[in-house]
């Protein structure tokens, strides 16, 4: 069994929605909260690819941003390599930020056109001040560009982002994350902006990095097909909580939470003549300001019982090792 590298315990992020001064005078309305992440426990193991999947608004991106400390925690703990990093002060945390890197969805927005590719990839080294000489910077930048397959690296280093295709830009983003030799890489929808033929290149690249450098990867995605291909284990999130987690293949081939079942059943497949039983949910995801009592999925669940509207189910371990948050 591989060792745990990152753990979150009861992770919570509530965003405050101010009632407004006048409204508070008139109606005694108080502030409300968007419970974007509402008690998430994850355990990510050394060297694995772990996917966090769900629809928009399920909190998957906020979880990633909390781990990177791009948002402040409302409650809970984050442990990384055996240390509780959620309580560290900013200067101490900077060391961890070097070891945990993130790549974002939009390779068109995340790279500055005022800088050359070489400068963009060198930037993290300068921010963290982890170089001894300029020639070392150059060496590491070129090595990172080589690693992500932008060859010849010398030539790419002098180019500007707008001269590159979307796939190449996303490679630059990966190179900028790799240049600090992170042990954990968080990829937030790394391929959803890319064309199908490019997606494979980036996914393949991420798989290679894991193989060659042993990097642990947290993959945030709404695309279950991508998760199925990439991830060893997966967590399905709904309204700020994990409803089911376990080995990806088990969960997607044989989902046990009603929400996972529904989600898997509606993913279209690029094949014809496949008969699948569909579980089409009606209605919309409730607002995270006004989360239903009991099980937060009970308002849309076709199997809901009386108990479900009262008592919130905890994640329970099943005989096959997966964890499911459902009373049934």
């Amino acid at each position: 069994m591989a060792e745990g590298i990152l753990e979150t315990r009861n992770l919570k992020k509530w965003f405050t929605v101010r009632a407004g001064f006048l409204a508070s005078l008139v109606s005694k309305k108080s502030d409300s909260y968007i419970r974007a992440v509402d008690g998430v426990d994850l355990e990510i193991k050394q060297g694995e690819i772990f996917a966090i999947a769900g629809e928009s608004g399920c909190g998957k991106t906020t979880i990633a941003r909390l781990i990177m400390r791009l948002e402040t925690l409302t409650d809970g703990e984050i442990w990384f390599e055996g240390e509780k990093i959620s309580v560290l002060n900013e200067s101490k945390f900077k060391e961890y930020r070097r070891r945990i890197q993130m790549i974002f969805q939009d390779p068109y927005g995340s790279l500055s056109n005022n800088m050359t590719i070489g400068e963009i990839v060198a930037e993290p080294l300068k921010i963290h001040n982890v170089y001894t000489s300029l020639s070392e910077v150059e060496e590491r930048v070129l090595a990172a560009l080589e690693d992500v397959g932008l060859r010849p690296a010398e030539e790419f280093a002098t180019r500007i982002p707008h001269e590159l295709s979307g796939g190449q830009r996303q490679r630059v983003a990966v190179a900028a994350a790799l240049v600090l030799d992170p042990v954990l890489l968080i990829a937030d929808e790394p391929v959803s902006m890319l064309d199908v033929s490019m997606r494979g290149q980036i996914l393949q690249l991420l798989l290679e990095l894991r193989k060659k450098k042993g990097i642990t990867l947290v993959l945030i995605t709404h695309n279950l097909a991508v998760a199925r291909q990439m991830a060893d284990r997966i967590a399905i999130a709904y309204l700020g909580r994990v409803v089911e987690t376990g080995v990806t293949k088990d969960i997607i081939d044989n989902p046990s939470h009603p929400y996972t079942k529904a989600l898997v059943s509606v993913v279209p497949v690029p094949e014809t003549g496949v008969q699948r039983e569909r579980l089409l949910l009606t209605g919309e995801i409730p607002s995270p300001i006004d989360i239903p009592t009991g099980c937060r999925f009970h308002t849309r669940c076709p199997f809901a019982k009386d108990k479900c509207s009262v008592e919130e189910p905890e994640l329970k371990e099943m005989p096959d090792g997966r964890q499911v948050a459902c009373h049934e």
Partner: peptide, 22 residues
Amino acid sequence: KLISSFPSILADKEIDFIPGNP
């Protein structure tokens, strides 16, 4: 190539892609 690059939840598929750019 386009079809084989397309991920599917139904089966274990090798990740395929089209090298180069349009």
